[in-house]
Write a protein that binds this DNA or RNA. Sequence first.
RNA 1: GGCGGGUUAGCAAAGAGGUUAUGCAGCGGAUUGCAAAUCCGUUUAGAGCGGUUCGAUUCCGCUACCCGCCUCCA
Length: 458
Amino acid sequence: MSLHLYDTWTRSLREFTPLKPGAVGLYTCGPTVYNYAHIGNLRTYLFEDGLTRVLRMNGYIVNHVMNITDVGHLVSDGDDGEDKMEAGSRRTGETAWTIAALYTEAFRADLKSLNIVEPTTWCKATDHIAEQIAFIQAIEKKGYTYVTSDGVYFDTAKQASYGHLGRLDIAGLQGGARVDLGEKRNATDYALWKFSKPEDKRQMEWDAPWGRGFPGWHIECSAMAHKYLGEYFDIHCGGEDHITVHHTNEISQSEAAYDSRLSNFWMHGYFLLTNDAKMSKSAGEFLRVKLLVDKGYDPIAYRYLCLTAHYRSQLNFNWEALDAAQTALDRLRQNVHSLGAPGPTPNAGYVTKFIDKLNDDLNFPQALALAFEVSKSDLPNAEKKATLLKFDEALGLGFANWAPKTVDVPANVQAVADARWVAKNAKDWAEADRLRGELTALGWAMKDGKDGFTVTPL
RNA sequence: GGCGGGUUAGCAAAGAGGUUAUGCAGCGGAUUGCAAAUCCGUUUAGAGCGGUUCGAUUCCGCUACCCGCCUCCA
């Protein structure tokens, strides 16, 4: 089947056809680099990585743009909280610029550890201040802005189309508003430009026609997506939380400036839950890839775990599930490795079936199940291997480069093992068992094979 | 308060109106001097109540519970 993707804009599955034949313009909302990414954040990037891999498998050239938010993202409460970068700076004593560089590098290392293909273009908000100011001016020219004592705001009441993506019920919103409006005219109005307060002594601030300050959060994505992908491109992605506010406002800005809803498809990855609650940076558990590694897991096991659930379902993380993923991954890799050299062509029937599953809105759980079916099938080894390597172009589990870990065996351990092998072959079971005990005491396990043995640390 | 999603076996999690999801764990067997690994087989399902249907875990309704967004957020 041809590629079908779920579009949040229409709330339905739609056939994907690129706006320009053969090429796909993709924008994915990147991290705010004020802290490390947790594995919940990374689930969304894994979903987007799966998407780009499937697009490429369908033969498209993907122009993937991801932003780095290094300014303007406020800590709390609507539009009057503290800037996250400045807060991070105060917390650590480093400059805001150093913080941004540090966490950007950490983020890229996390992506790499999960075998996520990097975007073709990275763009930083602070490198595009001029574009953002120009974008705000375009919106201003159309008459959608107003100025308060603390910034320039978008007047959402003037935009009849506002809120379609999130299916916002504006009246209902106002009834339950939890945030003080301040000088904002409407609950849904949002900041385009914020003025520096003299007492804040900001490290990141710029001159603009309305006054010295910094850009609002939503404007960076609209401005940079516009710059790198044009007024209307194929797919825009982010986490499910972006549906009602961030993406709604990106669309709002773009419709105001140049009458475009920015992207043909809007896709959203759903949250990772821990203990049946959202994992968040501001509260509760904060699991980083580093913690998984410290606990002895391969980061790819986390990737595997994410593949077992559909991107539009929330995934409930627990350690038992990660254990299961690690074990399954190890066995699958070992199996693929043991198949030897791949043949020239994968099995066409299985590949078609595989792509069909992925083309049905990225059904990775079923695609993965198919990988197990192939692994257990009676295809010749070379063809089986070629097929599974082909699958891995989408799965990204790194089959091609994986090999069992080789360990250096200390000479004394090797000597005991050799002695036990001799005893075993002489059917001297008492001696063989005694030497096995000796190896255990040394911290090593010995596994007998048909023609030899292996020793591994316990 | 408004809007949206969910409830599947021990755990995680899919599809499909009637035919084994899958993985991990468990259990049984083969193999092994014993182990380990591997292979084969296999037990546990679909919140409750009602409706539609020859047939529903799958469609519809109600109830209960859970989660997300509406506020920084992946």
